[in-house]
Write a protein that binds this DNA or RNA. Structure first.
Length: 193
DNA sequence: ATACAGATCATCT
DNA sequence: GATGATCTGTATT
């Protein structure tokens, strides 16, 4: 995983991140998963936290490509994003679902259940122990949370839909998922695989 | 399988 | 004081 792969248009990066590994190391133990669902957010559209400019909360979203933007929402969940494009531009990819790989026992412990370990932005953060302490880390260099090579996803296996849980700019098809993967956060739209 | 209510709090107005 | 890039349990079809 190199910085230049994250420097492109946020929608391109959102697709490119599918199949990549997200690795969490805590207390010498590894948890990891393959990214299977993502959403693009950009300062030029109203759904983005960066749309109204930089604040202390969304500062990491304007950081260099590969910066983690982690925030707390609804009084119960953390969500994690990967900043992209370039420093000073509020663009980031929300990670919405992973296919669990290593450390599943620890994920079960962290989640307090055996199902839906990482299918949802809040769930995956809980499963991997991701919270605000990791806001702003460099995902290309940090040893606690980082991106790594995964597997190739063929272009025709990537499916695109509208984003989940937003009210503004809701019509943009900026959600990307691996077609047919059982770990995505919601059922496929009618007729899709 | 889908729908809804309630929890709960950091952040911004 | 209102809002929200969610999750969970419960109820209903």
């Amino acid at each position: 995983m190199e910085a230049k792969e994250l420097a492109g248009d946020v929608r391109t990066v959102a697709r490119r991140l599918l199949g990549m590994r997200l690795v969490r190391v805590e207390a010498g133990k590894v948890r990891s998963g393959f990214i299977v669902e993502s959403e693009a957010y950009h300062e030029t559209e109203a759904a983005s936290h960066s749309h109204r400019g930089q604040t202390p909360r969304n500062r990491a979203m304007f950081g260099p490509p590969g910066t983690a933007y982690v925030y707390y929402i609804y009084g119960n969940s953390y969500c994690m994003n990967v900043a992209c494009e370039s420093t000073g531009v509020g663009a980031a990819v929300l990670l919405r679902a992973l296919e669990p790989e290593l450390g599943q026992e620890l994920m079960i412990q962290a989640r307090g259940r055996k199902d839906n370990l990482t299918s949802g932005p809040g769930r995956l953060c809980q499963a991997l122990g991701i919270d605000r302490r990791l806001d702003g880390v460099d995902l290309l260099r940090d040893d606690r949370l980082y991106l790594a090579q995964g597997f190739e996803i063929r272009e025709d296996h990537v499916f695109s839909t509208t984003r989940i849980g937003i009210t503004k700019s809701a019509e943009l098809p900026w959600r990307y998922l691996v077609s047919g993967n059982p770990h995505v956060s919601r059922p496929r739209p009618h007729g899709a695989r």
